[in-house]
Amino acid sequence: MLTIGQFSKKTGVTIRTLRYYDEKGLLKPTYVSPSGRRYYEDDNMVTLQKILTFKFLGYPLEDIQSMLATSDLNLHKSLVRQKQEMLIKKAQIEKTIATLEHAITLSENQEEIHTDVFLSIIHDLIHSDEQHTYFKTLLPEDLVDELEQLYKENITDYTRHHLETTLKLKEAYRKQLPDEEVLLIVEEMVSIIPEHLLTRIIEASKQIDEGTEIDESLFHMPFTKEEEQWLERIMKKSILGGNNDE
């Protein structure tokens, strides 16, 4: 029999990991002395190889434990299911990497980054697919698809523009600029959207029930409550003023 130290050297698995596997019931030593020293034999090596193989394939320890204890395991079905789960994780990792690359590009040459605004943009990047689906419940599908395609083709320009104009609005609130100057920033913010699409968005928005609540879990607002109320007041004042002029 081998001591836990000898077994560790032979297998390349740390003593700490072997003790953890013992505690979890994954790999029990062949013998434990009255003083608590663990001893292992060749049969333990076979079990350990199975554990390491399943770990390499991405199985969590809880699943490995049940798989080792099951004599009639349908390995093929289990492997197919595990492959599907790993493909999902792969897609998530690829999306995370793409988001990080985009975030790095956005943060370049930025002397100071406003955390709330930046995180709002990153949140939108992460949840873009869910937002796309959600907007289809409010706006015509072809309009949403066209906007999505345009956004993906110009994602860096769009997000940088959004970052810059949002920061301008927050600075306008801090300085309490006149409403006319604030409205110019708002116009600048939406100016990146082609006029024909912006017109369609405005018309389609009129058809949305006033009581419709936005799914806040999909959107991370970069403004404080005070900033939102300030901006809403200016926008309402502008709209009412426009109606009076008519």
Rank of each mutant, 00 (worst) to 15 (best):
I155L: 14
P194A: 05
E41F: 10
Q131A: 03
E180W: 09
P178Q: 06
F223G: 02
L143Q: 10
R160F: 14
I122E: 04
E171M: 05
L48G: 11
K136D: 05
R174I: 03
E62A: 10
E153W: 00
L184A: 14
S217W: 10
L143F: 02
M1G: 00
I104V: 10
P222F: 12
T47N: 12
Q49I: 13
G58F: 10
R38Y: 04
E111L: 11
H123P: 09
L147A: 06
L169Y: 00
D129E: 10
P60C: 07
F223I: 04
R37E: 13
H127A: 05
K90F: 00
S78R: 07
K237M: 05
I201Q: 08
T224G: 07
E130W: 03
T156Y: 14
S128I: 13
N154S: 12
D209H: 13
A103E: 02
H114L: 01
L125F: 07
H102E: 11
I51T: 06
S8T: 00
H114G: 05
T3M: 12
R81A: 13
A172I: 03
N154L: 11
H196R: 13
I193M: 14
K175S: 07
T105S: 13
S238H: 15
I214N: 06
Y31A: 08
K170Q: 15
Q49N: 12
I202V: 12
A204P: 07
T133F: 11
E130A: 01
L106C: 03
K10A: 10
L125E: 11
S33A: 09
T165C: 12
E195N: 05
M221V: 09
E108R: 15
L57G: 12
L147M: 03
H220Y: 15
M235D: 05
L163E: 03
E188G: 11
Q149T: 11
K237P: 01
L119D: 14
T96W: 02
K236T: 09
H220C: 14
L177T: 05
L147K: 01
H220L: 14
E62F: 10
E195H: 06
I202M: 12
V80G: 01
F7A: 02
D245R: 04
L57F: 15
L167M: 11
L75R: 10
I113M: 01
L100W: 02
A172D: 00
